[in-house]
Amino acid sequence: MLIKLEKIEKIYEIGTVQVPALRGINLNVEKNEYIAIMGPSGSGKSTLMNIIGCLDTPSSGDYLLNQHNVSTMDDDQLAEIRNREIGFVFQTFNLLPRASALHNVELPMIYNGTPAAGRRKMAEEALEKVGLADRMHHKPNELSGGQRQRVAIARALVNRPSIILADEPTGNLDSRTGDEIMEIFEGLHEQGNTIILVTHEEYIAEHSNRIIRLRDGMVERDESVH
């Protein structure tokens, strides 16, 4: 079992009012699954993604990621887990604007102390994998949206994480470019990666093998797709 969520609750306190965002989520994810999380806004999908991505910890419940109990970790331990286990792909790409594609991809390796030479080699390989071998030294503003998202995917891959966590990865792209990005995800899935996708587009979700629908902080439906 790669991910095991047990009775995950997340309650935000706004002033004296308690707002529950997640109300007892149970979820198991095996290695090499390709999952889409769907749900209307306010359903708690962002909160769930933040918890799975170790950017946040649950108010109660247990989260086991690769046998690590994440729910009780402090900031530094979470940072280390994010670095090793999670590869993020964001809707807005979130590349460093002044750094080249290569340096952007090197970034996660800087924070685990990979020496410069190894960093460069691995970043080059990751960029080749997403088809950007000829764009390595371009800055984000010299790349198209699709190319930027590929850089972001290369960055997510480079540390060989357990999960690739993509939040609306095609949200800022036209549908053709979006399809290209989805093809890359499919390829990654075939190579054995575990992918969790957050989206509100049915046709994007249909690329996955399993769709989890959330409503009001709970799992409404959890179904396999073929």
């Binding site: 530094d76 979130n94 924070y111």
Partner: peptide, 16 residues
Amino acid sequence: TREIGVRKALGARNSD
């Protein structure tokens, strides 16, 4: 701020 968020998401610790 956003850059800091990205760095943290990628594994930068507070001390970094």
